[in-house]
Design a protein around this nucleic acid. Sequence first.
DNA 1: ATAATGTTTGAAACCGGTTTCAAGACGAAC
DNA 2: GTTCGTCTTGAAACCGGTTTCAAACATTAT
Lengths: 335, 335
Amino acid sequence: MAQKKRVTIQDIARKANVSKSTVSRVLNDTTPVAPEKETAVLAAIAELNYQPNIFARGLAGGQSLSIGALTQNIGSAFYDTIMRGIISGLKGSGYSPIFTDGRWELEEQQNSLQTLLERRVDGLIVVGGTLSGAALSKINEQVPVIVVARELEELQERCLFVDNQQAAYDATRFLIEAGHKQIAHITGEAAHQDTHRRKAGFVQAHADAGIELNPDLIVEGTFRRQSGILAVETLFTRGNSFSAIFAANDQMAFGARLALFRRGIRVPEDISLIGFDDQPDSAYMTPPLTTVRQPADLLGETAAAYMLQLIKKKPFTPPPFTTDLIIRESVALFR
Amino acid sequence: MAQKKRVTIQDIARKANVSKSTVSRVLNDTTPVAPEKETAVLAAIAELNYQPNIFARGLAGGQSLSIGALTQNIGSAFYDTIMRGIISGLKGSGYSPIFTDGRWELEEQQNSLQTLLERRVDGLIVVGGTLSGAALSKINEQVPVIVVARELEELQERCLFVDNQQAAYDATRFLIEAGHKQIAHITGEAAHQDTHRRKAGFVQAHADAGIELNPDLIVEGTFRRQSGILAVETLFTRGNSFSAIFAANDQMAFGARLALFRRGIRVPEDISLIGFDDQPDSAYMTPPLTTVRQPADLLGETAAAYMLQLIKKKPFTPPPFTTDLIIRESVALFR
DNA sequence: ATAATGTTTGAAACCGGTTTCAAGACGAAC
DNA sequence: GTTCGTCTTGAAACCGGTTTCAAACATTAT
């Protein structure tokens, strides 16, 4: 059953005794139309429950009314929150988002990108990832690009990100102020920009506090839970003592926490732990994890708003993004 | 810069010295074409880097080559895994997925549905949610619908789901066999089908084991972390003793675990805990959570494969889906 | 050799919108 | 009363594909 024939603009035109052109005009509000005709058209649209054909519109108008969003891990809390921000930022604009998942793999990112471009998105929001700035810059010539949670030289004003170094600095300083002097750091994956920024903040905080940093206390991780476990094992293998760990993200903090648990080491009584991202589960860690919160929702919403302005070729100045240290219970004063 | 003009089928035709029709034919493989012409067309396509215009194709062919997927919480591990399954199941088929998020709110689900329908998806995969069977059944008249993780009378053969009752039965039985006799259950939200199935399994396991079940040990939750905390508080307020908790999902198990932690109650030494879903974080709980695993990836992949067959109007019989009890460290023998 | 059949092929119609263009209506200015 | 400019409107072209249709050609049967 169902409606055998879809209602077209022609049907509306006929019903309202006007031409297709006029219907199109009231639909898009491009040219003034006599009030009584407009009313008639609107009535016909309502009565016939007309839905414009998106393909015809896209074909004729050259617009898809969709924004592509390429994230790296739909399903991770951080990306999810950004996505929700994008959704809500686009709400009511007539544009709808199309999400794809790059899975942190370059090939997958390229495929996803290809898919979005084939779908003729009117704008592209890239969240994280490892696509080169040059590549994105080239795409930006075709369709406006905004980059979230990453900083690219080539697309300077199009990047929305927080000051990762400062955030890591704050986190480290918090540990130092709590009396910790021997602090370990589990870094992210080397290929990531954030990894280096956060590490730099960690280092800087030591320097500013006049604490000598033992390079053996820095262990390379991958941003994944598993690597948090490995990192802690590595730390103990190396044999240096430490009273706190700063993990470059919450997932690794979870891994570290499990590794400590396995060794019967208490958190925070024996060793303090601090993460980065404030993913939802972190508040439910035992003990609840002290961590750095990024305004992921705001980043997403801003990206959407920015994109809408970009499409309209209007100027836009993104607000500053600040991070917050969420103090919970995984950090103790060093006795 | 960029390509000022997009390459069209006409350009290819000209270059290969054939007509548009012929190009279209080699593109879609609908009618045999002379080998030498086919080669010429293919060469032209490669040389000019031709990408078909998806709108023109959709308009002319009446196909969008996209599959809509409506999930409830992009970002929750369970939905995420299903989504990945859908992505991988669709890979190479020419169809690409469009995801929307219903957020477990009816209005949002309806909006999302509307968006997908406007986008003229060729198929719709609904994951969970609260849209009525009648509503979905009606949509199924327009476009094939598959429902994942939910069972609907109206769309019987289109539903892919696991036996929640059996899975909950297994989990409960595991606790009983470990010697637990007073087991608490934190249910999901009443509006959900799964909630009742899981509860039924919990009840049935008691009956089969000849253990009388104290109804005070069943507390209503909402599937959210927070409700796990509340549920544990409620249990202690009620004052009944119990040695194990079966939470209807992992998130609530996390909440319960935190509540126990706050009270200084050890898991599993004092109270055992078992969850449902096996979300990634669960393996990193302290102690790692024993839980029920649903084959979410398989569900997603199957949904995609099923949809492709449906579109081709071919028959398809989904494989059986089984759950696994993932035994970790949150359950102890009752002494 | 002729008729019947089958295979390739291009022209043209079509999908459902948007946009250009020119004509018609109308009020203001001369 | 003309002329001019502005506003509203419909016809037609166009976007870039797919599909129908009939013609052209090749193949086989009679």
